[in-house]
Simulated assay, not measured.
Amino acid sequence: MTAPTGRASLPSFGVDDDRLHAPGEKHSWTETSWWSFNVPERALAGWLYVQIRPHQNTTSGGAFVYDATSPLPWQLPFYAMFDHQRLPADFDLTHARLPSGVSVDCVEPGMVYDLGYRFRDETDFVASLRFDGLIPPFPYLSGTPPFSASSHFDQPGRLTGTLHLRGERIEVDCFSLRDRSWGPLPEHWGRGGRMSYAFATMDARNGLLAFCHPVGDDPFTDTESVTTGYLLMDGEVSRLTGGSRKSARDPVTRMVRTIDLELHDELGRTVHAHGEARSAMVLSRHRVTFNTLLEWTDSAGNVGWGEDQDLWPVALLADSARSRS
C-alpha cells in the first residue's frame, strides 16, 4: 500500500497515539476508540465503543449489535451503553479492560489489535475479534469540518473472529472500519452539527469514506456536499477534495434507504458509489444517530459493505418531525 497523498502536510499516527494524550484545557476534552464489524449474509453489524473524559475521570461506551429486525435500541439483538464509569487507575488504552466490558489489546501499533467484549459474567453477547489494518490510520486536517479542533483518524481493516450472541456462535470475517479521535467534544449542538459519515470497503485494495454536510438553506435537505474523506483505489489512498451525496429516505421512519455518492480526490480520480440499506439502528444521545448497514457498489463494479452514520441534533430532528405533521 502507498502512503496517503499529501501525508507530509497532514498529521501522522504515531506509536503513542494508541495511548491517551495530555488533555487540553476544555472540560469537554474526549478520547474515543470505535470499532465496527459486520456479518453481511445476515445483515448483522455492530460496534465496540470507548469514550474517555479525562477531566471527569470517567469512561463511557459499550457494545451494540443490530440486524434487519428493528432499529429501536430496546429491540436490538444486543444493546449495552454505559455512562460515567470510573476510569481505571493507570489506564493504558493499548491493553485496556473497560468496566463496560470492552477490551482492546494493541498487537502491532497502528495496525493490528485484538478486541473483545464481555460484561462481567453475562453471556448474552461475547466477542473475540482481531483487526488487521489495510492501510495506516488515515489523517485529517484539524480545522477541516467536522474536525474544528480535534484530531481524528479513520482506518479500514479486516476483522476476523467470533461472536456469541444469545447462545449462538457467529463467525466474523469482514472488512470494516475503526476510528480514533481526541479533542473537545461538546454535548449540546443546538440545531447545528447535522452531518453524515459514510464508508464502504469493497476488498483489501478498494474502499471509500465521506464526511458530508447539508447543502443550501434547507436544514432538512437530502443533498449534501463532501467536506473530507478518502478514496482507496487499487491499493492507493488519497484525500477527498470534493463531491456530493444524495440520500433517499423511508417515508415513515425518515431513515436512509439509499445513498448515492460522487467523490473526487487529490489524484484526480472520481468514483460513483451506490449504497442500499440492509439493516439499521438508532442511537440517541446529544445527537440522534441513524446508523445503517449498506451494501455498496462502485462505478468500477466493486461490491462491498459499510455503514452510514446520519447524525441529527435533537432539536433539528424535532423540527423535521413537526414540519411533516
Results as ranks from 00 to 15, higher is better:
Val104Arg: 03
Asp105Val: 00
Cys106Phe: 00
Val107Ser: 02
Met111Ala: 15
Met111Asn: 07
Tyr117Phe: 12
Tyr117Cys: 01
Phe119Gly: 05
Phe119Glu: 07
Phe125Glu: 08
Phe125Gly: 08
Ser128Thr: 03
Leu134Gln: 05
Leu141Trp: 13
Leu141Val: 09
Thr144Gly: 04
Pro145Val: 05
Pro146Thr: 02
Ser150Arg: 14
His152Gly: 05
Gly157Lys: 02
Arg158Gly: 08
Arg158Ser: 08
Leu159Ala: 00
His164Gln: 13
Arg166Gln: 11
Gly167Met: 14
Glu168Phe: 04
Glu171Asp: 12
Val172Tyr: 08
Arg180Gln: 11
Arg180Lys: 14
Ser181Cys: 10
Trp182Ile: 03
Leu185Ile: 08
Leu185Tyr: 12
Leu185Thr: 12
Pro186Thr: 15
Pro186Ser: 15
Glu187Gly: 15
Trp189Met: 06
Gly190Phe: 09
Gly190Arg: 07
Gly193His: 03
Tyr197Pro: 02
Ala198Pro: 12
Phe199Trp: 15
Ala200Lys: 10
Thr201Cys: 14
Arg205Lys: 08
Arg205Val: 10
Arg205Met: 13
Leu208Phe: 14
Cys212Ser: 15
Pro214Arg: 01
Val215Ala: 11
Asp218Phe: 12
Phe220Tyr: 14
Phe220Lys: 13
Thr221Trp: 15
Asp222Phe: 07
Tyr230Gly: 14
Tyr230Phe: 15
Glu236Asp: 11
Val237Glu: 07
Val237Asp: 07
Arg239Leu: 11
Ser244Val: 03
